[in-house]
Computed example of a mutant assay.
Amino acid sequence: MRGRAVDLAVALFVLICTLPVVGLFVTSFRDKDQIAASGWWTAFSPVEETRAFRLPDRGEETGVLLGATLTGSVLAGDGRVTGFGITPRAPVAFAPGEVARFSGGGTVTVSADGAFSVSDRSGHAGGRRIYYGARLSPRLTLGNYVTVLGAEGLGRSFLNSAAVAIPSTVIPAVIACFAAYALAWMRFPGRALLVSAVVVLMAVPLQMALIPLLTLYNSAGQAFGFEAKSYVGLWLAHTGFGLPLAIFILRNAMSALPGAMIEAARMDGAGDFVIFSRVVLPLTLPALAGFAVFQFIWTWNDLLVALVFLGPQDDTLVLTGRLLNLLGSHGGDWQLLAAGAFVSIAAPLCVFFALQRYLVRGLLAGVSR
């Protein structure tokens, strides 16, 4: 009974976490107007919308326009008119086929397929607006992804994000491996204090330390003559923020290894470096992979640290910054936001699926000790 309850709770948690991703994915293929009219869960069913249409000017000879259709310019050929009206207060007061009379003279009728007829012998009906309710078929399109992928500079920003994320993952992972081994299996004064410091540093907010870190880096740059805005500074920043978590995870994994195995290696004449490289490191690869997944996703999706250390220049702008600029230039185009989100998570998803079998094993390493 308890196991079934746990399975049900896990399934519910997975569903809650998955639904927003599914909604974002469906939204990325939807039309802008339908996104504004209904939720993503209605993407595969007809949508009811109310719209306005400006009547063309009156014909010069007969005063009657016949056969012009709303379908060509408004309904895009995939909808049906469910009602129409001549005031915004009653946009569907008339059924399709009925005749509506304007207060200043003239009549209009709209059929279900969108064709309308205007009779304007008074000279006042032309140019007025009519309102109509439309039942539109679902519209899914790849145009959102075409717009996002075709944005100027997107390829360069993708490479910039890779140039940030890959070194920012490898550098702290390498340093943390050595530090974790020392804290797990080497005896020296102050080891317990260092372990406590690592745990405390995990709680330091990034926003609190970012500006002092940038000031320190700029001062060092002036002293040693290197650029203030560079990838090196960004790598060092991400390394500093990622090291506490990396050391914590790897130390737990290394501490969980059997002590008899380490002692047997020492009795065979192996030194610390040999034990680390040939015994400990291969057994802690799952924990290392687990940290690498989290660090890569964090650095790939980062915008704040990248803007602080690289700036908003076009040649150094990361992918998240490029997509933000794209949304800024297009206003409230939420379909571009959804498509851009899935473009930006393509690389993290590849890393996650490649290393997912190590992820849970790495995060649980050392828990039983």
Rank of each mutant, 00 (worst) to 15 (best):
R139W: 05
V99K: 15
A365Y: 02
T215H: 08
Q356R: 15
A52T: 12
L324Y: 12
A253M: 07
L317A: 05
L349R: 05
L15Q: 03
I345K: 03
G240S: 10
V293N: 02
G77L: 14
G127A: 07
L19G: 00
L243D: 00
F248G: 00
A11Q: 11
A11H: 09
P189H: 07
P20C: 09
W298E: 01
A365C: 10
A192I: 11
F178V: 14
G126V: 13
T62S: 13
G362F: 05
L149K: 06
R266M: 07
G331L: 14
L8C: 04
T42V: 03
G63P: 07
G233F: 07
Y145V: 03
R139M: 05
F102I: 07
F188K: 07
A163L: 15
R30L: 03
G133H: 08
A237P: 03
T141K: 10
A253K: 05
V47Y: 01
P189R: 15
R251K: 14
R357T: 04
D31W: 11
S73C: 10
Q222G: 12
V10F: 10
L213G: 00
L55E: 01
G155F: 14
L66A: 01
V199G: 00
V164G: 02
Y231L: 15
L183K: 07
W235T: 01
R89V: 07
R322T: 09
A173Y: 03
L303K: 07
L336K: 06
A184W: 06
V26A: 04
A223V: 13
T169Q: 08
F294Y: 04
Y131L: 08
D78S: 14
G221A: 13
G106L: 12
L206M: 11
L364F: 05
A115W: 04
G225P: 09
A180N: 04
G331T: 12
R2A: 01
R80D: 01
G155H: 10
T18E: 00
S157I: 09
L183W: 07
V47N: 06
L363H: 03
V74A: 03
Q34I: 12
H238F: 14
L303W: 12
L55Y: 03
L307G: 01
A11E: 04
R89D: 11
G269Y: 09
S196L: 15
G104H: 09
G63M: 11
I35H: 03
C177P: 00
T27L: 14
L149Y: 01
Y131C: 05
A112D: 06
V195F: 09
T82M: 13
P96Q: 10
A95P: 05
G39T: 12
D333V: 08
L355K: 06
A176V: 10
V47F: 01
A192R: 15
V308E: 03
G150L: 13
V92E: 11
Y131F: 15
D78G: 09
G67S: 09
P286G: 06
A253T: 05
E263L: 14
L70V: 10
F273C: 04
F25M: 13
G328A: 12
A95N: 11
